[in-house]
Every structure is written in C-alpha cells, then in structure tokens.
Design a binder for these strands. Structure first.
Lengths: 165, 165
DNA sequence: GCTATCCCGACCTCGCTGGTAGGATTAGCG
DNA sequence: CGCTAATCCTACCAGCGAGGTCGGGATAGC
C-alpha cells in the first residue's frame, strides 16, 4: 500500500474544487456530501493542503475553499507530498537520524558503501516522483468531467466528445 | 512508506545468496549474522521467497538456501511481489470485493465512470512495476561486490574495475 | 543419537491510520 | 445585535498491520 486515504481524499477534494470555478469558494460540507466522505476528517486533510499553499480559504458563512493556483500549474507530486508528508519507499529514507541502534538497513552503518538495496529503492522513488510530477490536477479534472457530464446532460454520449470548454 | 522491511531484508538475503556461488547452500544463520538481522524473522521471510520459487532449500545439518535461478534472470518485480504480497498503491486496488458499504474511493460505486484518482494511482503503479522489472538481482549483486571487495581484497580500489568474473 | 539446520504456527507489542468529539473563531445576514 | 454557516484546532479513540519472538517439530550429516 503506497498511499493512505489522505492522498485519495485530498486529490478528490482538489478535483472538486477545480471543477467549480475560482469565483466562489466551495464549502467542505458540499464536497463531503458529494463525494460521501466524513466531513471532520476532510477538515484535517484540507488543512494539509492549505499549509502547502495549494488551497485558500474564506471563513465565515458562505465561506469555503478554492484552489490557490490554476489547476494546470498544480502537479501531483506537490499534492501527494503535502498530503502524505514524504514519499520515502523505505523507512531509512525518511531522514538520517537513526540514533538508536536498530539495524533496519545498512544504509547508515555501511556509511554509504555497498548498499545495493538503496540503489533499488532510489530508482523506485525517483520513478514515482517523476510520474506524479508529470500529472497535473487539470489533467485529472479533465479526465473526470469528460466522463461525468455534470449530472444530467444528455448530450455527449461517448468519450469522443471534443470537450467544448 | 512504500515497502516494509520484508522487502528490504528479503532483497539483502537474495544478494547474499547470490554473492556465494550456487555450489553450496548458505545457512540463514550466516546471513543473519553477516547482515545483522533477526534470524527468526528471516526464516519467515525466506519462506515467502521459497514459495515463489526464487530460492531452494536443503534441510538438515550443513543445509541452507541458494538461488533457484541465475541472478541475471531474477527481476526485482517478482521478488518484491513475493515479499510484499501486492503492489497496490491504494487499498481499493487490492481486489474488487468491497462488499461493505465503506466508501474508500469511488472506483467501485462509480462503476468505472469518472474516477480520476484511479487514473493517477494506475500510472504510479505501472511506473513502479516497470522500474522494478528493469532491475535484476545480478545488477544489485554487481553493484554491491564492486564496492565491497569481499572484506580484505586490496585490489580493485575504484569503481572503474571491469569486474573480471 | 547428537546437532545443525529448515520449517511452522501461535503469540506479542507498538505506532499509525482513519475517524470522532467538542469546541473556538470568523463572517454574512436579517 | 444575535443567528448561523462555515473554517479552524486539539484531544481522544479503536483497529490493524508491521516487526519480531518463542517453542517446537522434521530432517539430515557425522
């Protein structure tokens, strides 16, 4: 299991924000109802996105959230990093403070020499980061709206519709 | 955290087996001592590798394990899959039986339509699988022996050595 | 038969995930 | 000026899987 539900819920939240325009904020309750997610949990998730400056909020009645930048310029590596905290494939990748004597991997005690597994995990990590960085939020929004024509829109029967903006 | 210590320990075990020849089996105790890993835990890990036909065992005194195939033909996707069980980036990827009403993701209830996150996770999964499949055990063994000249071998000072073998 | 080794299942502890509870603050609106 | 809808914040909790231990059984060399 690579990612937790934080990433799943957070990405779906961003997609919902992106589907609405930037003109008016969207309340978390609306997203929670629409996506069938627990509201209280969503609150904690959106806080992560706000701290990463991916969304901005408006408090008070009729407040809510909206994207802080256009969806085209939001890459998923930034999103997942904000939601999951890190993308280390192995525990020893998180940081260097392995003060206690536990020998989870030889990356430290070997002092860099001959750690073959680190080569492998690094390759995987770089690949994942690249995959995420190559996917923008706009791409996901487009993928979704292309298939879900906004709940009650008898036109556009097939996936061949040219997306008339 | 993508992978658990099972993958880490299992890969290091395979590397140790590969560094020894195929002529005589290597006991788990030797590996556990050399890599400083808990023996009892290693036993359970090697069982996974054996079930996947990646190693073969010899029981009794002076028994042990050895690679079931040459290291060149062992790709890491097979190894990691055997050790971790699956490589699903998200819980709903594990299998399709989501009988209970939990709404972890919309992949199911949406019946395939409009699930943008699935697009993202699929991309990541495919990328990881490809990265792992492109790395063979022989490559890791080579990387390791090139830097650790078998504990007391003043030749081969730099990484430029042409790996005689 | 002794010992080294593989084999197997039960058990345990701990941290994290996923979520809830309850409130404080802020702002539109009549 | 309240009321209400919303963001914000902190503490709490249950379940589960990771990581490991333990004890014992089977098997083969000497």
């Amino acid at each position: 299991m690579f990612f937790t539900t934080k990433a799943e819920y957070g990405v779906r939240l961003l997609i919902e924000l992106g589907r609405q325009g930037h003109d008016q904020p969207v309340s978390l309750k609306a997203v929670a109802d629409g996506e069938n997610l627990p509201l209280a949990y969503l609150e904690r998730i959106v806080a992560l996105l706000k701290r990463a400056d991916l969304v901005e909020s408006t408090r008070g009645a009729h407040g809510g959230y909206r994207l802080a930048r256009p969806a085209q310029s939001i890459a998923m590596d930034e999103v997942v990093l904000a939601l999951e905290g890190s993308l280390a494939p192995m525990e020893c990748f998180v940081d260097d403070r392995n003060d206690d004597g536990r020998v989870l991997c030889s990356h430290h005690d070997d002092s860099g020499r001959g750690c073959a597994t680190k080569l492998l995990w690094t390759r995987v990590q770089v690949g994942v980061l690249k995959t995420l960085a190559d996917t923008t939020l706009a791409e996901l929004i487009d993928f979704q709206t292309r298939k879900l024509p906004r709940a009650g829109d008898p036109a556009a029967p097939g996936p061949r519709t040219p997306a008339p903006a």
